[in-house]
Design a protein around this nucleic acid. Structure first.
Lengths: 233, 233
DNA sequence: CACCATCATGTGGTCGGACCACCACGGGTC
DNA sequence: GACCCGTGGTGGTCCGACCACATGATGGTG
């Protein structure tokens, strides 16, 4: 038995845990620059290749950020950084799981919209209205989708919970919505979507949390119901 | 200009997109075995090292699974596989973000508990009761924590939304709860926790969704309120 | 024939070293 | 003082070798 820590699992896994522990214990602050890959590898006693894989893993998790030619840095550890992979989940999910994802979105987004009705500022409301009118002024599906996403994002961020906003961002990833909504809107759901958006907007202007929550739940619920029917038939 | 795809970003990034696309297009089915690292690398035209990093990235996302000596396989792409990194978020979050995470958990878990009250089977209810009594029968904090987690997990999974259950699993990761609840329970919150658990259980037995939802929201809300006070003072 | 220990093969895991692409900094130029 | 450019250091990529493990074939044994 030697004095070095016994090998648990793969060396790369060890390295990942080591770095995660350093951050968890506060020895590495957000934004701080790490030693070079070569130094880190030597320090832990593994090869640079393995250390690179560990860094890649932490990069994917949104914990580290590698800048070519500059160095490796700890991210700000904000919700957006850490939940980026959430979009991948939405992109690769199919069948019944899509309905489950929409259900989660309905629950979170309706709550967030309700909160937003009580907290939204005049500036934020103006931004929401900008996307609402822009969405109604064009027929280009791409543009509509972009403003649709921005419309909801603005509302959700007005609720004041960055973590929830980040999760909903992943749940509303562009490719995800494009996939689900393509069929939905082809069935002439444009008019209904506009009506629902208008209802949400009205509730926000009226600072009516209950109505806003219900309107958002109904909005997402419509898509959810349509998708459920698609899968069932 | 050559006929090969132009290099967008790093080669590793390209490889990640390629494999993700293969799965998204259905060319790779869940559970299926991929070509060897060496073959994949040659096929895309990159080195094995870079391909390994791409595989590592997808492994972290829960999309692929590497079995030493056997091969690389596509996971079942179930919620649990894909949302594993969610626990890392909870583990590395601190300060105000912990409150935000608890708020998300309160929203989702209260809804799930309400649904469970309407859907839970006799067997599942028996399992819930098992953990409830076991939790009350011991003084060992470790054991209490384990049964506490299992108690909530059983209820949430009874709600029938695997995706939601997976998210809540991450939000209730062992280290996360250990960190937050250590201080909370040291303040003599054991009795209150037991009362709240009993209330949730009663509502489940009575098949009363509204009461169950309220009880769960109050339960998580208590911890949330305590944590908010800790950070404020 | 049925069973099991053994081994050969192929796989992912690790290593070391080399070179390339890029960035940041500082000295030189105007 | 502002600007340009060289230079050192960093992450990104590649190669080839070896190790650790899992699996199936092999051949012996009952």
């Amino acid at each position: 038995m030697d004095e070095t820590a016994p090998q648990k699992g793969t060396v790369t896994q060890r390295a990942i845990e080591r770095i995660k522990a350093m951050i968890g214990e506060g020895r590495l602050e957000p934004g701080q620059r790490l030693p070079t890959e070569r130094d880190l590898a030597a320090q832990i006693g593994i090869s640079r290749s393995s250390m690179r894989e560990a860094i890649r893993a932490l990069t994917v998790m949104g914990v580290l950020e590698a800048r070519h030619g500059s160095g490796i840095y700890v991210t700000q550890l904000e919700a957006g950084d850490l939940l980026e992979t959430f979009g991948v989940v939405a992109d690769l999910s199919r069948g019944p799981r899509l309905v489950e994802l929409l259900e989660v979105r309905r629950i979170l987004e309706s709550t967030a919209t309700g909160l937003a009705a009580a907290r939204i500022t005049a500036d934020q409301l103006a931004e929401v209205e900008k996307h609402l009118t822009a969405m109604n002024a064009t027929e280009d599906p791409e543009e509509i989708l972009a403003h649709d996403i921005a419309f909801h994002r603005e509302i959700v961020s007005a609720a004041g919970n960055e973590t929830m906003a980040a999760i909903l961002d992943g749940l509303s990833s562009r490719t995800f919505r494009a996939r689900v909504w393509r069929g939905y809107q082809e069935e002439g759901a444009f008019a209904r979507t506009r009506r629902e958006h208008a209802a949400i907007h009205r509730a926000l202007v009226a600072r009516d949390p209950d109505t806003a929550r219900a309107a958002a739940a109904a909005h997402v619920g419509e898509v959810e119901h349509w998708l459920r029917a698609q899968l069932g038939g």
